[in-house]
């Protein structure tokens, strides 16, 4: 019980930097030549005085280049490119949970733990990964292959439960068995198929494709000629009534005289 409380109370990642041999200010980092082209194309999207808008994109690019994490040196480099203080980059990088500021395994398994997935068995998925890879949440396996984190809704609740790997590929409709299968394939160096793992196509319902099967009906248009005629008739009727009323009033007035 106490263990659980402590695990819940302690944060998953630290909000501050820890100086390590593999991650410090002197660690060399530079974007590759290909990525510099990418940097230029990203910067071109923003006005030069608002360069800093490109910060998240550049951090993501750096994360991709460094196998899934952003070293401190990369943040410093980005601060130089964007002409902002280093602290500004640290703030952004530490705010967003999708930036890993510590190294992760080759496959960063982000299991969705939000309500629909949880109802559909996300906890079993997590347990499977924990047992198969001998890791707990926020840990990396000894062989450096897997890192497990629990994340919030990944936006495919129809295919719950699901995991996202390295922030890109998603594997849906999981069961403990299919999850184990996936892990085994990765361990064997194979790449499993992306998407639903129960043979379902995208997010089709259990009865296959049911809607949008027939030809779409033509849109119904209003008959403007008729509408116009109706309107004219109505007007004429009203005019008649008003005339009759006027005539009656005139008659009454004459009688009084």
């Amino acid at each position: 019980m106490l263990y659980r409380v402590i695990r819940r109370t302690l944060s998953a990642t630290l909000s501050t930097h820890r100086q390590t041999a593999y991650n410090n200010q002197d660690t060399p980092f530079d974007f590759t030549e290909a990525n510099y082209k990418e940097v230029d194309s990203i910067l071109a999207k923003y006005p030069p005085q608002y360069k800093r808008s490109a910060m998240i994109n550049l951090l993501y690019l750096a994360q991709k280049q460094c196998n899934g994490w952003v070293p401190l040196a990369a943040m410093n480099k980005i601060s130089k490119i964007l002409e902002v203080s280093e602290m500004d980059v640290y703030e952004v990088a530490s705010f967003f949970t999708m930036f890993n500021r510590e190294p992760v395994g080759k496959y960063h398994l982000q299991v969705c733990g939000t309500t629909p997935c949880m109802v559909r068995g996300a906890r079993e998925i997590i347990k499977t990964i924990e047992n198969e890879c001998h890791i707990l949440k926020n840990q990396t396996s000894k062989d450096g292959l897997f890192t497990l984190t629990e994340v919030e809704c990944l936006g495919a609740c129809v295919n719950a439960p699901m995991i996202q790997v390295n922030g890109e590929e998603v594997y849906e409709d999981l069961t403990p068995e299919t999850m184990k299968n996936l892990l085994d394939m990765w361990k064997a160096g194979k790449e499993p198929n992306v998407g639903p793992q129960n043979g379902r196509k995208n997010s089709e319902g259990p009865m296959g494709r049911t809607c949008l099967k027939c030809e779409p009906q033509a849109a119904q248009f209003r008959d403007f000629a008729k509408v116009k005629e109706d309107y004219a008739n109505k007007k004429a009727e009203e005019a008649k009534k008003a005339e009759a009323k006027k005539a009656e009033e005139a008659k009454k007035a004459q009688e009084k005289k």
Binding site: S11, S15, H17, M87, D88, Y90, E91, S94, F95
Partner: peptide
Amino acid sequence: MPVLGTTGRGRETEVGTYIG
């Protein structure tokens, strides 16, 4: 000397220099 900032989010927000 912009060396201070808020790092982290939510409950884990901290004010500091991040790199110590």
